[in-house]
Amino acid sequence: MLQFPYQPVPTTHAPPSIRFGGLVHWRPFVPLTVFGAHGRSRHFQRALLDPGADDTVLPMALVPRIGISLQPDSGHRLHWRGQLYALRFGDVDLELTEGGSLCRWTAMAAFSDASIAYCILGQRGCLEFFDATFRGAGRLAELAPNANFPGTIV
């Protein structure tokens, strides 16, 4: 099982709903490595575990940089801050590591030019392969690969 403590994101204008933990948003971030063709990769310090997202969404800028082959435009769109952005899909390898554990799998991810602050690890491509537990009091996300996990566990 991989365990990731929530990470704090400071806020200068705290909403009244913040009751515990100071002037920060606590978010379930994980470090993520994305692999494209021929092992080319990029490391992201923070990707967001998001059970509310249908797909895993990565920046379109990655596509030429690590050699991702996109499928023809399927017409799907992402709604972000009031605008619609094209989504294009392609296969990548994703890797999560924690301590001495590593999970790497091939996923079909969506790519978008929307200015989302983080890579989004949604249901398809990521969370469908894990039994995920979000421990609110402990601010800890736990990911246990499930029977559908299609990759390598070390």
Binding site: H25, H43, Q45, R46, P51, A53, A117, G122
Partner: peptide
């Protein structure tokens, strides 16, 4: 290591 620094107070929602 790549990261994006938020520029405003944003409440994220899936």
């Amino acid at each position: 290591i790549l990261d994006r620094v938020e520029d405003e107070d944003t409440l994220l929602g899936g």
